[in-house]
Design a protein around this nucleic acid. Sequence first.
DNA 1: CCCGGCCGGATCGTTTACGCACCACTGATG
DNA 2: CATCAGTGGTGCGTAAACGATCCGGCCGGG
Lengths: 298, 298
Amino acid sequence: MIDWDDVRYFLAAARGGSVRAAAKRLGVNHATVLRRIAQLEERLGTQMFEKLPSGYRLTPAGDEVLELAIQMEASSHQLETRVFGRDQSVRGLLRVTLTPILATHLLMPDFAEFARLHPDIEMEILSSGELANLTNREADVAIRVVYDRKTLPLNLHGLKGPELFGGVYLSRERLAALREDVPDPIRWIVISMHGIPEWASEGEVRTTGAPFRVTDAAAEIAAVRQGLGITTLPCFVGDADPLLTRVPGADLHMYGTVWLLTQGETRKTKRVRLFTEFISRRLTAYTPLLRGLSVSRE
Amino acid sequence: MIDWDDVRYFLAAARGGSVRAAAKRLGVNHATVLRRIAQLEERLGTQMFEKLPSGYRLTPAGDEVLELAIQMEASSHQLETRVFGRDQSVRGLLRVTLTPILATHLLMPDFAEFARLHPDIEMEILSSGELANLTNREADVAIRVVYDRKTLPLNLHGLKGPELFGGVYLSRERLAALREDVPDPIRWIVISMHGIPEWASEGEVRTTGAPFRVTDAAAEIAAVRQGLGITTLPCFVGDADPLLTRVPGADLHMYGTVWLLTQGETRKTKRVRLFTEFISRRLTAYTPLLRGLSVSRE
DNA sequence: CCCGGCCGGATCGTTTACGCACCACTGATG
DNA sequence: CATCAGTGGTGCGTAAACGATCCGGCCGGG
């Protein structure tokens, strides 16, 4: 009889493309992955990988195994979510994934209050890097900004939140200096991956020089606060920052819509229900801020 | 992350109803099953069993886990069969399950010849006790006597063999003694589980005394050879045995039909094809013997 | 060129999980 | 009532699995 857990190692290796990548994902030593795959191949009597110097590549036999391994994984994930869905206690873990910018500039105070209200709920905020996969039960709740509703995964249950508008911002100091005709260059600050949105206009400000590229939103905000130039920001970031102000003459445009996403089984949980209801109320209250209506036109 | 192999232990325990029964099936120590289930329960954060002194009983949560565990098992079995189906080499293992009586009294010489013809095929004959499950890949080929075609599993591929007739037999010595009017009791020898078939008639012989009950066919044959009485036997057993002869006046009746069963994926294998073709030819050659036509009426 | 990063693979101590023996308990059976 | 065949549960010594480390090969950028 084969060891079912070996299939899990196989799956990681098939996806990672190499033993070492799989080991990293699984959080184990690469020698372990090596051994378990060798064991599975021996027990099945088939070679599932071509062992190249550049990594592992699936053989035709491995392709077939992969298909069934994915099935096993699906069952395993369902198993976990079903068990978790039965858990109606207030104690326990609740994992939330969202974009870093929403976490740091909007919702962290609400998370804090929720944590105060429910001290028995152990919370984990996953706001680093890529969006966690709900179906894999890497997280229980996802808060995402959706640009096109069609991109919403169908297997998730969505709760639509307020719409999110963005505008063009620069530092108040810089704007004041402009009116005094100080001829410093004003640059477009852009996140390398995204670039400048089509709707962004420079308004009454003229940019000069090459774009200033940063890798993430945190650096973007830091740059614009330093008066380096202008950039597009969600209104809730720009309007809430006392150092920043909107570029006169530049219009607001819709960014996307905030969605609260949960998965079928896990959303039965009391913890998840409490959290989504709480955050949903808060998001509703934030509607003016998110739409950019919270500041009077200057 | 849960250990997928723990699910296999859980499944065995859920089916066996106790830790020790599961351990026996899995071929491991019962302490291991105990530990792995405890580990799985801890990682899932749920109790899956009520731990009674009389054994383990599933909790409602355990019921849900069981459902998914069965799904995982199905994927695992498919995985094994698919990989096995790809194996076109003549070397390797071939497992055959059949009733003990077919093995010992009819096909063993053919198995021996097949093994001589293909020395690289490692053969395993499973003729003890219950019929192995093909879908679980406990065996690759099954040879079964089917009484009602409707009982054939639909997921298996069947190759119909000859029909099997049975008759009523007693020892030649005893028959001779009867004609000399020796007044020893003649008993019906029956296998406890089966009893006497409806079609069985005593023919020209009168049975006396209580039935003589045995537990298996081997004991039944031994008993009838000792002249203990009369019994129903497949023709290929009774006619082939020089010590036995049919009871005069008792008719032959159809027992059932021999079927050669294979499973979808495994039957693509060269080993399985070679074997089924070989045995199928032999069975065809045995048709007269199996139908009871190989002996002239006495 | 050479160097750094990544790959699979082998070796070697150490930890972990296993089998074994044993216990307490239960429930049927003689 | 004693026995016996079951059950789950528990320490303990050992064997198997694991992590750490090193090695040789490969490949692309400086």
